[in-house]
Amino acid sequence: MAFRALAYWLVRYRRTWRGTIVVSVANPILFLLAIGAGLGTLVEGTVEGASYLAFFAPGLLAAATLQNAFVEAGFKVNSALRRERIYSTAAATPLEPGHILAGHLMFITLRLMLSAAAFVVVMALFGLTGSVGVALAVTLAATLTGLAFAAPLAAWAVTVSDFPQLNTVFRFVVMPMYLFSGTFFSVTQLPGPLRAVAYALPLWHGVDLCRALALGTATPGTSLLHAGYLTLCCVAGVLVARVTFRRCLHA
């Protein structure tokens, strides 16, 4: 049944996929060029044992996936219920709210994975990924990072009746997380208490996982810890979303 809901999103995506791929490729190219040629040359020496560009790129990948997750699971979930009535249309058929949720999350996973893959291809062009295996691992890690946000975001966004509230959360929750999760600089540079906060942020786990995999410094222990934490966020999000989707779709 969830696949029927996924089919809808795929039919719709058929119209727009070209544009989204172009954006997913062009964005990292511009960022990495600017950072590599510009900011990167200002940073002397290495960060966590790597060139600034090699340090920055996987962090940006994780952060960009968070941003994509916010668009796909925040804004689009909300609009699917309120503005476009995509959910209520599906709810009038044999699909249950849980199927509608699952179908949309499957599509979001696909979108996040495609964007991450495009990013990783760009990284490869800059010589920032070792092997194909590393590239795949980084893509999956970034997708998991995105899902750790997408599921809880969907759970919340479906309940929001006032659209500007989404923007507020983006500005005051997502952006700070973006800046303080070790994307642009190592969190070890943060003062003690702030560092503790950063370690609790899911994005830091995503950033560190992607980075360690890309730089080849990953250890099984920390990787499992990161992946476990992200999976936990994702599962918790899905469980809450199952409740909020039922409440909002079958009001």
Partner: peptide
């Protein structure tokens, strides 16, 4: 429903298609 809930981005035929798929 009271408010049209067609997908305005899709064609007439595609709207019927996705809805039919919902019904299996």
């Amino acid at each position: 429903p009271q408010d049209d809930s067609l997908d305005t981005q899709l064609t007439v035929e595609e709207n019927l298609l996705v809805y039919g798929l919902y019904f299996g």
